[in-house]
């Protein structure tokens, strides 16, 4: 079963049901490692690079909420990520909002877009769902290309990082890192909480057998839309945070290639695993960093990884590790 359907997150078996924040013991251990990495790494590695990883990790986790737990493959998540970035950048630069409010604005626009696109896309499922989200995201791309506030090909540049709550200036990378880390951890735990709530159980029921969930009295469309909106909101937050980190919002983040990239990250890490998207984001961002000098070959390598993952490595890194250790991560 786990081999034929695309989503691999299985329901918890009885003896796995466990304590801390709903994590199983293996997951609690993995979360401890993740937390330690987030806390220690900025003392050794370049904070901007780490912040980029955290932003994409949150983006990939948000994407995974849909594919891993509701079984819907969105090929248009760049729309939320990119628009979140634009709105945060605009709010911080033109409206002069403080960073936390600017990021919040990015989340709000992700939410609104999620309602719009999700409302259309949940009318179909499977391959059609992917094509509809892709087409809708392309429409958002054309909007960003033409709308005056996005700056067209130039994007929004020199976005000020501002001061957190108007008090703590975030100009230093090291200071900003902790804000990004908190945003990421909050998003990560929120997704974990959603998945393990009664709402999340229904989501998984929809994935496993939608007609049956309907017959039990659940309005499955409402659940799908809700999951889509949550995913879009968190993607908007991730995009907004990234725009603040780099001080720029451009068409790259709203282009369809970005939608493909987040699919790749999640696939590499492991679809439907809790930690897979984080690992996948770290792998892909690191790879892009080191291969940047090879120009167009990066695209080829990404394509090869895609093909290799689909043909031979469908569980992803974390999925394979979990399979080896016989635990779910």
């Amino acid at each position: 079963m786990a081999d034929t359907t695309i989503a691999v997150a299985a329901p918890l078996s009885a003896h796995e049901e466990a304590g801390f924040l709903g994590f199983t013991r293996a997951q609690a251990l993995a979360f401890g490692l993740l937390l330690a990495f987030v806390l220690v790494s900025p003392f050794f590695l370049y904070p901007v690079f780490l912040m980029k990883i955290l932003c994409f990790a949150l983006f990939a986790c948000a994407f995974n909420l849909l594919i891993g737990y509701v079984g819907l493959l969105s090929f248009g998540h760049a729309a939320f990520f990119g628009m979140g970035g634009y709105v945060t950048a605009h709010a911080a630069k033109v409206w002069g909002l403080t960073p936390e409010l600017a990021i919040l604005a990015g989340g709000v626009v992700g939410c609104v877009l999620g309602v719009g696109i999700g409302w259309l896309a949940i009318r179909r499922s499977g391959i059609y769902f992917a094509m509809i989200t892709l087409a809708a995201a392309q429409m958002v791309y054309f909007f960003c290309l033409q709308a005056p506030f996005t700056g067209g090909e130039d994007g929004i540049q020199q976005v000020p990082r501002g001061a957190l709550f108007g008090v703590i200036p975030l100009g230093a990378d090291f200071t900003l890192y902790w804000v990004v880390a908190v945003v990421f951890l909050a998003g990560f735990l929120l997704i974990h909480r959603i998945v393990h709530s009664p709402f999340g159980q229904v989501m998984k029921a929809v994935r496993e057998n939608e007609p049956r969930a309907t017959s039990l009295g659940y309005r499955t469309d409402d659940y799908k839309l809700m999951a889509f909106v949550l995913s879009g909101t968190l993607s908007g937050v991730a995009g907004g945070t990234k725009a603040l980190v780099f001080g720029i919002a451009t068409l790259t983040d709203v282009n369809w290639t970005m939608s493909g990239e987040v699919v790749l990250m999640t696939l590499v890490g492991g679809l439907g695993t809790v930690f897979g998207p984080v690992v996948g984001a770290a792998v892909i961002v690191t790879m892009q960093n080191y291969l940047a000098e090879f120009g167009a070959w990066v695209t080829v390598i990404q394509g090869v990884i895609f093909v290799a993952c689909v043909l031979a490595f469908r569980r992803g890194v974390v999925g394979e590790i979990g399979n080896l250790l016989k635990v779910r991560l």
Binding site: T4, T5, I127, G260, T299, Q302, G303, F306, V307, C309
Partner: peptide, 22 residues
Amino acid sequence: LYKLDHLYGLLLTFGLALIIEG
């Protein structure tokens, strides 16, 4: 991939498109 979820076909051909274009 025929025995798997149809979405894998989409992902595979997406990867192929990246390779060819690159």
